[in-house]
Design a protein around this nucleic acid. Structure first.
Lengths: 222, 222
DNA sequence: CCCGTGAAGATTGTCAACAATCCGGAGATA
DNA sequence: TATCTCCGGATTGTTGACAATCTTCACGGG
């Protein structure tokens, strides 16, 4: 039994982790809209578990900041007002600029750029096909890829939450029209700044991109 | 009842939140050293609660990344190897540079600078008195103040965890000697860069400070 | 008509018991 | 001697029941 046929260590997950993931997905997709109370009994019934594991999952989401807890009253999906959205994008900028710099100074810049370009291309194709859903997905995939390539577990964890919140915002305004070409161009500029290894340019492009995205959002909200 | 005598809305906290805070403190101070298993029964007994609330607190810490969960085996205080420490400082750099920029561009720069200068002065005094404990505390207070002044709930939340991890590292190497003057000088330079409103300088100073701190740590670890 | 009072219902917070899983060592077997 | 098997003890995972709290709504007094 000493041969190693490339097996991976079995990594099972605790039930609370599983439930957490599903709830997060629900919040993200808008199945659980902002402000809704998360009833323990009904959710537990839906998941087919007792309230114990479910409550543990809830506490995770509270810690993550996706859920707000009111003592003896219940848990509610966090609502995002304009100030919160600004803060969200401020933090995204912090994380993603750091990620970009890590990627640019990393060992495997060439491969990283290849993957980022692929993501940018996917966005361009979706824009050309006028498939807004695909465009949005490719957009998220780009930013997730950027942070993944940085190879930082902490940046990744924080960013994961931020992306859920971002998706929350966009889901709430589904159907709003954004100019696809602008978005595609902004992402390309980010990639090229990384390729050029120009730290200042990277930061500037990401900042501008976030500012644009934020403006689009705020404009659509009013 | 329309007069507003400056009362604050009562905000009580759930038991799990309270326990979480205490456990976090324990991890930070080294009462619960890295790697130790967190026994549910003994901890529950110590806190005088049942395992329910305690488990909820644990899940929070898992989500925060301070505790690692092994299924059916237990929960362990996360250990930080060199790669983790590097990642920690990378992320701190990301958060604190963003905070510094927010402070520099904020409405109340003057007041903010005042408070930061006060923190820097406290450090200098501790260094002059050769009180290493006070110096370390003042150091932490400076960085916490910096992020608080940014007024960003997200940056704050993330930073809180990072500071716990930082303290974990330092507690583990208690007794090691670092040159106080260097540390004091680095912090002063950060404040002055913010005062000058020079974004690039701010980023550079914080980056260098983090790099220095990281080097000190890694050197001490080996 | 308005406001304070009180009880019913529902929801969350907590607990102690039960089930499942894992780790260690004693003993048997080759 | 080395290895396999099995059992005991301990720890975690899960559950259902009980206690505490909050909300709602009807009722009665001013």
């Amino acid at each position: 039994m000493s041969v190693a046929p490339g097996f991976q260590p079995v990594h099972r997950e605790s039930t609370s982790a599983l439930i957490t993931r599903q709830l997060r997905e629900g919040i993200m997709r808008g199945t659980l809209p902002a402000g809704t109370q998360l009833s323990e009994v009904s959710l537990a019934a839906e998941f087919g578990v007792s309230r114990g594991p479910l409550r543990e999952a809830m506490q995770r989401l509270v810690q993550e900041g996706l859920v707000r807890s009111e003592l003896n009253r219940g848990l509610f999906v966090k609502e995002l007002d304009e100030a919160e959205i600004r803060d969200l994008y401020l933090t995204r900028t912090a994380i993603e600029t750091a990620a970009a710099r890590a990627v640019a100074h990393g060992e495997t810049v060439t491969q990283s750029l290849e993957r980022l370009r692929a993501r940018a291309t996917a966005m361009a194709e979706a824009a050309a096909a006028e498939d807004l859903q695909a465009l949005a997905d490719a957009d998220f995939a780009f930013h997730e890829e950027l942070v993944n390539l940085a190879g930082s577990p902490r940046l990744h964890r924080v960013h994961e939450t931020l992306m859920v919140e971002t998706r929350m915002c966009l889901t709430a305004l589904q159907g709003t029209y954004f100019d696809p070409e602008d978005q595609v161009a902004e992402h390309s500029r980010i990639v090229e700044a990384i390729a050029a290894g120009d730290d200042a340019a990277m930061v500037r492009e990401i900042e501008e991109h976030m500012q644009e995205a934020l403006d689009r959002l705020v404009r659509a909200t009013r």
